[in-house]
Simulated scan of single mutants.
Amino acid sequence: MQKVLRDKIIEVCNKKIAAKGTNVGISFYAFFKNKNDNPELLMEAATWWIKTHELDHFEKAVKIKALVQ
């Protein structure tokens, strides 16, 4: 996983956890804007989420953060 993606995932997870608590769920779309301005990075995140870890659409932010770290 590219460092830029890893850093973005940790940043988003930290913000979501701080705002909504440890039970907050996220999907890999949370790491991107509402437009597809970086399709390579989006596909990397989707592959990591869906194929590599076989995660559900929504997962706990604390779980995702732990997997990335």
Rank of each mutant, 00 (worst) to 15 (best):
M1R: 10
M1P: 06
K3S: 15
V4H: 10
L5S: 02
L5C: 01
L5T: 01
L5Q: 04
R6G: 11
R6E: 15
I9R: 02
I9S: 02
I10W: 00
I10H: 09
V12D: 08
V12N: 07
C13G: 08
C13E: 04
N14V: 04
N14F: 07
N14E: 14
K15V: 03
K16A: 11
K16H: 07
K16Q: 08
K16M: 03
A18T: 11
K20Q: 13
K20A: 12
K20G: 00
K20I: 02
G21F: 06
T22D: 12
I26D: 01
I26N: 01
I26H: 00
S27Q: 06
S27R: 10
Y29R: 10
Y29W: 14
A30K: 03
F31D: 02
F31T: 03
K33Q: 14
N34D: 13
N36L: 15
N36P: 06
N36C: 10
D37F: 10
N38H: 11
P39R: 08
P39W: 03
E40I: 08
L41M: 15
L42N: 05
M43K: 12
A45N: 01
A45D: 00
A46I: 09
A46V: 07
T47W: 10
T47V: 07
I50W: 05
T52R: 09
T52N: 11
L55T: 01
L55I: 04
D56G: 09
F58K: 15
F58V: 13
K60Q: 12
V62T: 13
V62A: 02
K65R: 15
K65P: 05
L67C: 06
V68T: 15
Q69F: 13
Q69C: 12
